[in-house]
């Protein structure tokens, strides 16, 4: 996994609650057996005027001028501002893959759906929960200022606004460590292989019917 330490990135606002994973990456693109290449189809149904199909040349498709991420001022954004319950719906990891492939590294919102939240960390994507009032203010500032950027410092757990105000955020210490170092969960877990084996042996003895 790509480590995440510090980012000074352009911000884009997606002012909707309950953005679901079907919207982030529609199902026809789930037929791919790869992990990469989903970026051009992130938010496909909102982003383009036609219906997208896998394997298409996306550069030739008509863009929806009303979709916020299509505005010139947000091109190259690495930070996405969102509303409540972002990433609800299916467990498809294709959603964080698509966001990451699009270029986002940080998501900021009042709340995220559990599975999506979890999947993001596995892909070097940092979801940050802030109070609704803080998020409101970020939306306000971002929409009012072209080229609005935020500095996200994971080690210090701060988001610094252009006006100099630093906002602190919470993150599980374990997740933070993994993200800062770009550690692979599986490698970490396998350090406990003996413990897993012991646990399994005891469980097998106590509940043999789970091992038929």
């Amino acid at each position: 996994m790509k480590p995440f330490t510090k980012l000074d990135g352009l911000v884009a606002p997606l002012d909707r609650a309950n953005v679901d994973t079907d919207a982030i990456i529609p199902k026809q693109f789930l037929k791919s057996i790869k992990r990469s290449g989903f970026g051009p189809n992130a938010f496909d149904e909102w982003r383009y005027l036609d219906v997208g199909q896998p394997g298409q040349d996306n550069s030739k498709r008509p863009l929806n001028p009303d979709f916020v991420l299509n505005q010139q001022r947000y091109q190259g954004a690495q930070v996405l501002l969102t509303r409540d319950n972002f990433g609800c719906g299916s467990s498809r990891e294709h959603a964080p893959w698509a966001l990451e492939d699009y270029g986002f590294r940080v998501l900021i919102g009042p709340s995220f759906a559990d599975i999506f939240f979890n999947n993001s960390f596995k892909n070097g994507l940092l979801p940050i929960r802030l109070d609704v009032a803080e998020v409101d203010e970020l939306f306000r500032q971002c929409e009012a200022t072209e080229g609005y950027r935020l500095i996200v410092d994971l080690a210090a757990q701060t988001i610094t606004r252009p006006d100099g105000k630093a906002i602190g955020f919470d993150i599980d210490p374990f997740r933070k460590e993994c993200l800062l170092n770009g550690w692979d969960d599986i490698g970490l877990t396998l350090r406990h292989a003996d413990k897993i084996r012991d646990f399994e042996q005891k469980r097998r003895a106590q509940h043999p019917y789970y091992y038929a």
Binding site: R35, S91, R92, E93, P96, I115, N118, N119, K122, N123, D185, I186, T189, L190, A193, I196
Partner: peptide, 11 residues
């Protein structure tokens, strides 16, 4: 998610 599918398979 898929990373966890891999994690469960491996561990």
């Amino acid at each position: 998610g898929t990373s966890e599918v891999e994690h469960v398979m491996a561990t």
